[in-house]
Every structure is written in C-alpha cells, then in structure tokens.
C-alpha cells in the first residue's frame, strides 16, 4: 500500500512533474470531450489530417516568435479549408483529398524544421514534451482548452444533433454549415492543446480512443461523455506517472494505456463487449 502511495506521491516533489500531471490530465479531459463527437461523426481521418497539418504552423510560429498556438490554429483551419475547396472543385474523392493535403502540409513542416534546426526540436513537435513544458505554454494550454470546453458546453446539443441528423437540424433552421466549421475549429483548438502533451503523431489517439471506449460502454450521450472524460483523464495522468517511473516517452505511455483500456472495454463491456456477445450467441 505504502509503495503505491509513494509511486504517486514521490514524483510530485519535482515541480515539473506536478505541472506535467496537471497539464496532461487537463489535455486528456479536453480531448475526451471532443472525442465523443469525433467518433460519432466519423471524423477520425479528419482529426489525423488536421493534426499533421499544423506542423508548419508550429515551426513558423517559433521562427517568428509568435505563440505556437496561433500558428497551429491557422494551419489547422487552413488544411480544413483546403480539403473542402479541393473536394468541391475537383472530382477527387474525399479520402484522397485528405491524404493529399495533410501529407503536403506535414512535408512542408519537415522542410521548415530541417532548415531551422536550432529553433525547434522536431521530436518535441512530433511526440510532445509535457515533462519540459514551459510556464507560458501551460497558460496557453489552459486558456485554449477552457475556451474549447466552454464552447462545447454551450453548443453540446446542437453539435450532437448535427452529428446525429443534419437533415433535421437544417430543417428546423440550425445553421449546419456554421456547426460544421465550429466543430472543425474546436478540433483544431484541441489539437493545439494536446500538442505539448503527446505531439502531433499521437494526438489522434487522444481524440478517438476515449470516445471509442465510452461508445462501447453506454447508450446515452451524457453517459458516453462522462465515461470518455474518466478514461481520458485517468490514462493521461497514469501515463505521465508511468513515463516518469519507466523513463519512457510520455505520449507513448498515455496512448498505450488508453489502448489497453480500449482492449479491456472491447472484451468486458457489459452490453457491447465481446464476451457478452459470445455468450448471447452461444445460448
């Protein structure tokens, strides 16, 4: 028992660990909230695209000494607009367009990083650096994350209706085009928030795994949201501890934990789990 307490308490004597635990817990929360909409809307690929596309924005922001969030946001939304533009103006299918745009943006980011090696650490952009997060970035993360949470809190039901039945939403006068861009903007903001903790490669896991876990556990959206938040926060916090004790990549530990949680849920979920399904098929 004492060993377990020590496992959690001992690392907190370091200020960087206190910060890291709080930031990653918060990031886990924001991502989990968005993940419910991502999984229900089927936007996993879109999330992946946006997260890769922010790379050049982050590099440029560092080069010009602007807040990294600003650069990331501009390029995140830019990629979405580019995808929408190419899709509507050409005959190319959406998944091809998404693949085309995000790899293009990402490659541009790599070129920019390689030309400015002293300013930016590629590994931090790709894989996050929550254990070494500067105070300024902590504040940025909390401001942007809080804006995202507030926006979802206000538009929760409209966004849900938009995911579930956009036709009905439109027929009762909701502006579904606006909701589409709002959801994409929230996605971009969340990716910005998560950048520091897990990096752009793994952010997509934070944006779909908690939602997927919760989707298997619940048939009500409100419950799904709660399950997603619990699994998101727990895996982020535990993952951060794990990375400290194992001296391993933080983003990696968080996402591995999430994946383990997902596998357990997939097998043992009370209603939609594999065991229950197998048992009901056997009888």
């Amino acid at each position: 028992m004492d060993a377990i307490v020590q496992w959690f308490v001992a690392p907190l004597q370091y200020e960087f660990m206190v910060k890291a635990v709080i930031v990653s817990g918060f990031v886990g929360l924001v991502c989990a909230v968005l993940s419910c909409y991502m999984t229900l809307k089927g936007w996993a690929l879109m999330g992946d695209a946006v997260s890769h596309s922010v790379t050049p924005g982050v590099v440029l922001a560092y080069i010009f000494n602007l807040p990294f969030a600003l650069g990331a946001f501009v390029f995140g939304v830019g990629s979405v607009l580019a995808i929408g533009f190419i899709k509507s103006k050409t005959r190319i299918k959406e998944d091809t367009v998404i693949g085309l745009v995000f790899t293009g943006f990402f490659a541009l980011g790599l070129v920019l990083i390689s030309k400015n090696p002293s300013n930016v650490d590629l590994m931090h952009i790709l894989f996050g650096n929550v254990l070494g997060i500067p105070n300024g970035d902590v504040i940025q993360t909390f401001i942007i994350g809080s804006i995202t949470l507030a926006a979802v809190a206000v538009l929760r039901k409209d966004l849900l209706l938009f995911c579930f039945d956009p036709t009905h939403a439109r027929s009762i006068g909701l502006n579904t085009t606006a909701l589409y861009y709002i959801l994409l903007t929230l996605l971009s903001l969340t990716i910005v928030v998560a950048l520091q903790a897990v990096g752009i490669i793994l952010v997509i896991a934070m944006l779909i795994t908690p939602g997927a876990i919760a989707y298997l556990l619940s048939d009500r959206f409100d419950h799904m949201m709660i399950f997603a938040m619990i699994s998101g926060v727990i895996s982020s916090v535990l993952g951060t501890y794990l990375s400290y004790h194992l001296d391993a990549s933080t983003g990696g530990c968080i996402v591995v934990l999430q994946t383990v949680l997902f596998i357990l849920t997939m097998i043992f979920a009370p209603k939609h789990g594999l065991l229950v399904k197998m048992r009901s098929e056997a009888t």
Partner: peptide, 12 residues
C-alpha cells in the same frame, strides 16, 4: 447512435 427515443423526440 447513443440516444434514447425521448432524446430523439426532444430534438423536435
């Protein structure tokens, strides 16, 4: 989709 019958009707 994780919504109940009452949820759907409330959407009206």
């Amino acid at each position: 989709f994780p919504v109940s019958v009452a949820d759907v009707v409330m959407m009206g």
